[in-house]
Amino acid sequence: MTASNRKPHDPGRRRLLTGALAAAASVIAPGILLVAPRPAAGRAPGEPVTDRVRWGLLIDTTRCEAGCDHCITACRTEHDWDNAPHSRPDQQAQWIRKLDVHNPETGYTFSLPMMCQHCENPPCADVCPTGASFRRADGIVLVDKHICIGCRYCMIACPYKARSFVHETIGGQKPYSPRGKGTVESCTLCVHRVDAGRLPACVEACTEKAGGAMVFGDLNDPGSEISRTVSRIATTQVRADLGLDPGVLYHGF
């Protein structure tokens, strides 16, 4: 949480700041950012998603402060996933969490949000017996809770521990985010917002209230901010060795 923890990698940070992100830097004008990186206009009513789009997320860990949890708060507020009063802490849902990573060899420390990585080849969808876990054509990995039987094999298969099981009857769901006892759930990349042409809640919060470490957009569109940025700076995927090709890319480690 110290300053040195926060910016251990100044050159990278400077390079980023000179890039496209600089225009959107929340430090100067948070207001501008609200207008700038619109993912796309929402689709017309009745129009299905296509694979021409692949939604992705770029997270710059050099701008992600340890201890900052605006993304988590925003996600929780948006989807109301901590409303299980009888569940123990380890039974609570956790759609997004902050990881603090420390390299014992070099001493390098960084912090990052971890959530569903929206894999191109999601193991959760591979193992799901009913097809309730699936990857939407535009790359968003979702659970169809109508046909989820609650076997939890997807949670066993997910390398990122990104999924949660609802352990008790809950109420007070948000109209756009239905969820209930006995089914598995995870980050939806705020599909209800994305479909309406808005940013995911975590990205919005990070941009407005925190370091502006998250960029959301269409990885298939070479002109999008995320595509232009990832073509310029080094990015990596968590457990890239597994070959799952997550749609969430990280920079800074």
Partner: peptide, 20 residues
């Protein structure tokens, strides 16, 4: 429900939200 969840089709006339 299948159209919306799997194909992302929204804004059509049969929506549970509108029932509510």
């Amino acid at each position: 429900r299948d159209e919306t969840v799997h194909r992302g089709i929204r804004g059509t006339k049969y929506a549970l939200k509108d029932c509510v």
